[in-house]
């Protein structure tokens, strides 16, 4: 009697347990594998490289012009001088942290906030800036312009 009542109930109970067990197993596998595969997918921003940055092709920059390049979390001003030299400086004005720009008609690096001026070696030559701009190194590799921290 006892056996007969238990026998049909047990397989159903076991079946349910197996369902839950495999469901849990599946869920856990998902919660491990999803992060894992997401991690393996290369991030869209590319690799970290703050010691040097590719500014672009030589031809992207006109002679006698300047352009702001993002260097890590800092802006850098890349200037192609009238003598066709590449120079790079921190674009943060040493006076009150405004972003400086290259002024072609004056041939200087200029800060719009308080009329501070720097010459093309980064020296502060006019206005309030207390010290020169930090210089970065520019290396030209083939057609590529690379900016890196000065050692």
């Amino acid at each position: 009697m006892e056996n007969r009542t238990e026998q049909p109930a047990q397989p159903r109970k076991r079946e349910l347990l197996m369902w839950i067990l495999s469901g849990g197993l599946f869920g856990m596998a998902a919660s491990i594998l999803y992060p894992l595969f997401a991690y393996l997918k290369p991030p869209r921003l590319g690799e970290v490289e703050t010691s040097s940055v590719k500014a672009g092709k030589v031809d992207d920059f006109q002679v006698d012009s300047g352009q702001i390049i993002k260097f890590g979390t800092k802006p850098v001003l890349l200037v192609r001088t009238p003598n066709d030299e590449f120079r790079a400086f921190s674009a943060v004005c040493t006076h009150l942290d405004c972003t400086v720009q290259y002024r072609r008609e004056k041939g200087v690096i200029w800060c719009a906030c308080h009329n501070g001026t720097y010459d093309l070696t980064g020296r502060n030559i006019g206005g309030p800036p207390p010290r020169p701009l930090d210089e970065f190194r520019v290396v030209i590799q083939g057609e590529e312009v690379l900016i890196s921290k000065k050692a």
Partner: peptide, 10 residues
Amino acid sequence: SMLILLSISL
């Protein structure tokens, strides 16, 4: 919750 489910059923 998945881990708990799995642990309990296990």
